[in-house]
Design a protein around this nucleic acid. Structure first.
Length: 438
RNA sequence: GCCCUCAUCGUCUAGCGGCUAGGACAGCGGAUUCUCAAUUCGUUAACCGGGGUUCGAUUCCCCGUGAGGGCACCA
């Protein structure tokens, strides 16, 4: 059995979207599962619609998702070049062969392919046997001399010795054109695997570039964890069975196979993606989490003035890690750690001042601060518990007003962690200021 | 209009002739004497309809219906 060779063949005519990413992913997974070769081929035959910008978006997104290619632009390979705009000589050669076979003719300056009219049988690895008869001759070279998708796609699959064509179901009806061309060129058919489509979250139809949440680039900008997005994408149209969902990539590679792919379309669900991202975020190792967060905050221009010390930023990030589900939540969650001009939430304030004597509690805590041990959450917890016992109060009576004084908010990370990370000086100063103005 | 594909909770799915139809997300309810957007426990909810085949169909076949896709000198 010869080595599996699969390809992802995007067209740089728009931003890279989630459907394309999953097609790339399934091809990549199949190559890795079988120890085969994953080829990246750029289908840029429509000069009027292509752009270098979109091409770079594709490269960057694939890299971000971790879908490295074995042959293709920037890597090379004996079947190159890998941009169709650079393969005119190859197409010319195959066109001559087709012309010699008598299966072409000219019309209005374009070259048409004469169909056989025979029923085309496709043995699809996902759908089983599919039959379809092609009814009309079709253009393979435009009147401007540029070859058309159907032709170059087949020629390149032959020339690049592609063994498995894994692509979206929207190509299923085109496949009869392709099998006709394979046969006319005397080449064996590849194994086809038409994967179901991803439907838009709301409303009818498949997901398109214009839909909310469709662009891979956007997830990158929004601070999503690529491993989480990839894991989520795997679950759209494929299942590892045994009620498993989150699993490491090497496990996915081991389990992935063509017959396991679903036949029905899947609707995109951003909530499930958000959940998956949260799971990955909470399981991130400290170093990785800090590095990711620092990078994300920098990309958002979060620090307008001086960049804080790494050690302090790291403490803040790790304190908040269990409380957020996405790095997107971070800027809104940590503002008060990096400046004194945070606002006091009126609702939180009202809540705190409705009962008891919050100012007295804050005073007691303030008085205890100079001698307090800030080295651990446990020591600070013991301190507050001691105060509570001493003054016949609950720890909550200290925690809520103090949290308000320190952060302006009624929600936030673990209170003792908040004290520890802010440190004695900030805590004392903020409490003092709060008492003076409240 | 013609052709192709598909059909289990709202959503993603497990199931491949006999199951109390399982899991996850969302939703809802509780817990968390430090909040909560975090965490955790519990819970509501599904086999599209009609014919067959069979002792027995969610599962196999046919017909409807619904959903999706394709019918370009786009890819």
């Amino acid at each position: 059995m010869s080595q599996v060779r699969v390809r992802f063949a995007p067209s740089p005519t728009g931003f890279f979207h989630i459907g394309s990413a999953r097609t790339a992913l399934f091809n990549w997974l199949y190559a890795r599962h079988t120890g085969g070769v994953f080829i990246l081929r750029v289908e840029d035959t429509d000069h009027s619609r292509n752009s270098e910008e979109f091409l770079n978006v594709i490269y960057n997104s694939l890299k971000w998702l971790g879908l490295n290619w074995d042959e293709g632009p920037g890597i090379g390979g004996d079947c190159g070049p890998f941009r169709q705009s650079e393969r005119a000589a190859v197409y010319k050669e195959y066109l001559e062969r087709l012309k010699a076979s008598g299966r072409t003719y000219e019309k209005d300056g374009a070259t048409l392919f004469k169909i056989s009219g025979e029923p085309q049988v496709i043995e699809d690895a996902i759908r089983g046997r599919v039959e379809r008869t092609e009814e009309k001759d079709f253009v393979i070279v435009r009147s401007d001399g540029n070859p058309v998708f159907h032709f170059v796609n087949v020629v390149d699959d032959i020339a690049m010795r592609v063994t498995h064509v894994i692509r979206g179901e929207d190509h299923l009806s085109n496949t009869s054109k392709h099998t006709e061309l394979f046969k006319a060129l005397g080449a064996p058919l590849p194994i086809y695997a038409h994967i179901p489509l991803i439907l838009k979250q709301n409303g009818p139809g498949k997901m398109s570039k214009r839909d909310q949440g469709a662009l891979i680039e956007e997830y990158q900008k929004r601070g999503f964890i690529p491993e989480a997005l990839v894991n989520f994408l795997c679950l759209l149209g494929w299942s590892p069975k045994e009620d498993r969902e989150k699993l490491p990539m090497d496990e996915i590679i081991r389990l992935f196979d063509l017959p396991g792919i679903n036949q029905s379309n899947a609707r995109f669900d951003e909530k499930k993606l958000a959940h998956m991202n949260g799971v990955y975020l909470h399981e991130m190792a400290p170093d990785g989490c800090f590095a990711f967060a620092k990078n994300y905050l920098a990309s958002k221009g979060f620090f307008t003035g001086a960049q804080p010390e790494d050690a302090y930023l790291r403490d803040v990030v790790l304190l908040c890690q269990p409380k957020i589900r996405s790095f997107e939540d971070l800027p809104g969650f940590i503002g008060y750690f990096f400046g004194e001009d945070f606002a006091i939430d009126p609702k939180a304030r009202e809540k705190v001042f409705t009962k008891g004597d919050p100012k007295a509690r804050i005073q007691e805590l303030l008085a205890a601060l100079p001698a307090a041990d800030f080295s651990s959450d446990a020591a600070l917890e013991a301190l507050v518990q001691g105060l509570a016992t001493q003054n016949a109060a609950a720890t909550a009576d200290y925690i809520h007003p103090t949290r308000l004084a320190l952060s302006g908010s009624s929600v936030g990370p673990s209170f003792y962690g908040l004290l520890r990370v802010l440190g004695r000086e900030r805590v004392s100063a903020r409490i003092g200021r709060f008492l003076a103005t409240a």
